[in-house]
Design a protein around this nucleic acid. Structure first.
Lengths: 118, 118
DNA sequence: GACTTATATAAGCCTCCTGTTACGCTAACG
DNA sequence: CGTTAGCGTAACAGGAGGCTTATATAAGTC
């Protein structure tokens, strides 16, 4: 199952938000949902096969971790399809950093007058 | 159908990338896919009901437009679940100021040749 | 070794999505 | 008007996804 299809299910998205807080066992994850544990196990398998989660056997339990790498694909698509918009502050900051690191004089027309407290 | 479910289908994602280039008629969209026109019409309906597309009757044709607003929801979720690898603009500004105050010369070697021992 | 705990997998059922063909509606045109 | 073009919707078949119950595997406990 693709990353997009894996993210289409609200339970799986919720599982990922749980995993974001740190590793979690299958049981502790399942206890957060009203569905049966096998159902959660299936969701975890889907997330694993989509590359969004990894499982680590720790004794009797199985600890799951979030793998954020595949999300960059989603992010990239979003950025590609989002209509031309003013660059976000983060993007502008990114551009500014690049300019500064390249040693460009910023006094051209960056004119934002952010001359505060040297 | 939710935005996530609407985006789960590759045909619908492709349709959105087409709409990103500008308005397009249902026929011109359908001609880009191997599936039948009713199938595309159904996908367009899903996109409309998810708020991702709007249709405008122009004479005999029907022009579809991209509506990017619902994508912010997806973007927000991504940002919330993505591990802290992406510093916030404020953090980056802070780091940038620190770097500049430490007098780092930007024009040293921008390339990957980071042999500089300091 | 028997029992419990933690988890995954298989089988079965049901629902919903996706595609097709057939049909209806509105706009343009002679 | 009658005809054609463009789109949408209805009805139907095929298939995939998701949940539950039942079963299997592995680790810990006595």
């Amino acid at each position: 199952m693709s990353v997009w299809e894996a993210l289409a299910d609200p339970v799986r998205r919720e599982i990922l938000t749980v995993l974001r807080e740190g590793g979690a066992t299958a049981g502790s994850i399942a206890s957060r949902f009203a569905i049966s544990r096998p159902a959660v196990s299936r969701h975890l398998r889907v997330l694993r096969e989509a590359g969004l989660a990894s499982s680590e056997a720790r004794g009797q339990e199985r600890v799951y971790h979030l793998v954020g790498a595949p999300l960059t694909e989603v992010d990239a698509w979003l950025r590609r399809v989002t209509p031309a918009r003013r660059p976000s502050p983060a993007e502008r900051l990114d551009a500014l950093e690049t300019e500064l690191r390249r040693g460009r004089r910023a006094n051209e027309e960056v004119g934002d007058g952010h001359r505060s407290t040297g």
